[in-house]
């Protein structure tokens, strides 16, 4: 760092950035019709809500077990489908195997678009196209998993050790053989850990999927919210949180044993 790079010599740059941020902030405050007076005036609503949260309805837990198992099944199935679909696409999105930058760019662009669609909008769209139900939930989870894991997998493929590829090429392996015998063994463990990561994300996202009627524990959450039963809402969120922690611990244990 040169002395010219310090704050004292670049104050005009800092000032410019600060002014720009302030302008954006005031613009967004005006545009969103923010009214902190209203927030302060109705803060009692929050305290009502917090009081209900403070004593979750533990008796409701019994009726949550079945929807939770359904959510876990949907997530497991969707995750596996999504990851299986993501693997070939991830290979196509790197130049390592295809050796063709045009194909790589097309597939990367496609994967970027899939990843950009927020999963709630994706669920809403699929509900409209396919219809309401658990099957739609599985497909939504699969597409969402596909978006998340394909990027992680192709980033991993780019960092692999190239020497096995060269030796495979030297003995005359074709591209499919290189992918299966030189690349896959190097990334298999990472793919498995991404699958567990995606599974965890999907269990979390189940709250959202229920909102569009795609089955599982989210439907219960939606019901409780609609009836303003916040003590149940908190119970459901607590339960999801506990399940996520357990899923995390189990996947950690499995990954450690496989290593």
């Amino acid at each position: 760092m040169k002395i010219k790079d310090t704050v004292h010599f670049q104050w005009y740059k800092t000032l410019f950035v600060a002014a720009l941020l302030a302008l954006c902030l005031f613009g967004s405050i005006r545009y969103t019709q923010a009214d902190f007076g209203q927030l302060a005036g109705n803060i009692s609503q929050v305290s009502v809500f917090l009081r209900k949260l403070a004593n979750p309805d533990f008796g409701y837990l019994g009726r949550l077990i079945d929807p939770m198992i359904k959510t876990l099944k949907m997530s497991a199935l969707g995750t596996v489908l999504g990851v299986l679909l993501a693997i070939p696409f991830a290979f196509l999105a790197t130049t390592v195997v295809t050796d063709n930058p045009v194909v790589t760019h097309i597939f990367r662009f496609f994967l970027n678009i899939i990843r950009t669609i927020p999963n709630l909008l994706l669920a809403a769209l699929l509900v409209a196209v396919i219809g309401i139900g658990e099957a739609t939930g599985v497909i939504t989870i699969a597409i969402f998993t596909f978006g998340v894991t394909s990027q992680l997998i192709f980033e991993t493929i780019e960092t692999i050790d190239m020497s096995p590829l060269e030796s495979a090429m030297a003995v005359g392996a074709n591209k499919l053989k290189i992918a299966v015998w030189a690349v896959w063994p190097q990334i298999a463990a990472s793919v498995l850990s991404y699958a567990f990561y995606a599974f965890e994300l999907n269990v979390r996202a189940s709250t959202v999927l229920g909102y569009v009627g795609a089955g599982g524990i989210g439907v219960k959450l939606n019901e409780a919210l609609g009836l303003f039963r916040y003590e149940r809402v908190f119970m459901i969120i607590l339960f999801i949180f506990a399940v996520v922690v357990i899923v995390d611990a189990v996947s950690e244990a499995i990954r450690r044993r496989l290593r």
């Binding site: 209203q38 927030l39 109705n42 803060i43 809500f49 979390r204 959202v208 919210l225 969120i237």
Partner: peptide, 23 residues
């Protein structure tokens, strides 16, 4: 632990439906 959707529903009760609840 709470999803954004739950916060949004709570704040809609506090400040009424509209962009500020989302903020």
């Amino acid at each position: 632990a709470f999803p954004e959707l739950v916060y949004a529903i709570i704040f809609i009760k506090v400040v009424g439906p509209g962009p500020f609840a989302g903020v």
